[in-house]
Amino acid sequence: MEFAWTAAQRQRYEDAFAAARDAFPEERAHSFDRESWRVLGELGLLGACLSPEYGGQGLGALDTARIFEAFGHGCADTGLVFAAAAHLFACAMPIAEFGSPALRERLLRGMAAGELVAGNAMTEADAGSDVGRLSTVAERVDGGYRLTGTKTFVSNGPVADVFVTYAVTDPTAGHFGISAFVVDATAPGVLLDEPLHKLGMDGCAAGAVTFDDCPVPEQNLLGAAGQGSAVFQHSMGWERACLFALYIGLQDRLIEQTVRHVRGRKQFGQRLADFQSVTNRIVDMKVRVESARLLLYRTCWAHDAGEHTVLYAALSKLATSEAALASATDAVQLFGYRGYLRGNGIESALRDAMGSTIFSGASDIQRQLIAIEMGL
């Protein structure tokens, strides 16, 4: 087995880390803004795995994950990096794979450059993780479809220019009755809600999107009618393989901050680093992140090799998200009251980590997938 990175891969990580650290320092406001989005485009994050034909870098899953890891490490705004991941994996990649040439030509360059923001409109209030129970419908009409329904918790929803959404086109066909569409935010009948007030991930605006008798032209169908489940699984393959690399980077950042803190902070006449109970916590943080990192790299390698990735993706997602939450909790404890106060990036890391155990399939959904893959 080969664990070494090439010189080019190492340099790409270092460049991305330095760019993220310089562009998004700790003190910046954690809220979405178009200028920051354009910077992400200039730095190559928004088009990492898109073809160079459309302004991307043409990277595979493993190299893409490393860039998101670098940004998670260097950028203090985890929500903004998450917004970029949702934009790229859940929206740009399905368009690149299933969109018509005209649709790809119209959207992908702007998405890679940061000129456009895309929102992933799948989740519904009464469906949640049960994506087979969608209530949004798309009725066939002359020249296309008419879309009706409401999506909730749409990442980038309140600020998006374009949506990738899913609706039932044949209620008798189960998973084969779902279709995927690209919808412009300015289309008639598209109603955007105010941003939700979330626990964390402030840099990623999320909210409800309602499609009220919204016309969708035929050319905005992704793939064929009834292929929506395949489109969604394709996007989730990229998302579950690569997105959680940003939480590997977040954990690296937390460990560095915590090590600096315990070396410099004194209690009872000793450095915190001289107490074994303190160093044991940091060792556990390191064990978690390195274990999750290997699982994530294994998943990305399998994705690039065209292998079946469901088992490794579920293992990786579960390990990385649970590790991020546990390690952020440890960091708050080790920083004491400083960790509980806003402004030093510790409590915000805990709030940002909480969501990782819920989206892209909650932890118990991942356990269920693992059990199925094990034949249980």
Results as ranks from 00 to 15, higher is better:
residue 18 A to F: 14
residue 59 L to F: 07
residue 278 V to N: 10
residue 16 A to L: 01
residue 262 V to K: 12
residue 188 P to S: 02
residue 253 R to F: 05
residue 245 A to D: 11
residue 165 T to L: 00
residue 289 V to H: 07
residue 139 E to G: 14
residue 211 F to Q: 07
residue 256 E to I: 07
residue 38 R to A: 04
residue 227 Q to V: 12
residue 227 Q to H: 15
residue 4 A to R: 09
residue 25 P to Y: 10
residue 156 N to M: 07
residue 25 P to L: 11
residue 268 F to V: 02
residue 18 A to N: 11
residue 186 T to A: 11
residue 76 A to S: 15
residue 364 D to T: 15
residue 105 E to P: 13
residue 205 A to Q: 03
residue 272 L to Q: 14
residue 60 G to K: 08
residue 327 S to H: 01
residue 209 V to I: 14
residue 175 H to F: 09
residue 249 G to W: 04
residue 265 R to A: 08
residue 49 C to G: 06
residue 224 A to I: 10
residue 173 A to K: 05
residue 269 G to W: 03
residue 350 L to R: 13
residue 200 G to W: 15
residue 319 A to W: 08
residue 122 M to Y: 07
residue 54 Y to L: 00
residue 262 V to F: 14
residue 158 P to Y: 14
residue 182 V to Q: 03
residue 201 M to R: 03
residue 66 R to D: 00
residue 275 F to E: 04
residue 185 A to K: 13
residue 306 G to S: 11
residue 361 G to M: 04
residue 373 E to N: 14
residue 34 R to E: 12
residue 214 C to M: 02
residue 35 E to A: 12
residue 365 I to A: 13
residue 185 A to V: 10
residue 167 A to E: 05
residue 33 D to I: 12
residue 205 A to S: 03
residue 274 D to Q: 01
residue 356 S to M: 15
residue 368 Q to V: 14
residue 323 A to M: 00
residue 114 G to C: 12
residue 255 I to Q: 04
residue 211 F to L: 05
residue 182 V to L: 12
residue 105 E to H: 14
residue 122 M to L: 11
residue 309 T to I: 14
residue 133 R to E: 06
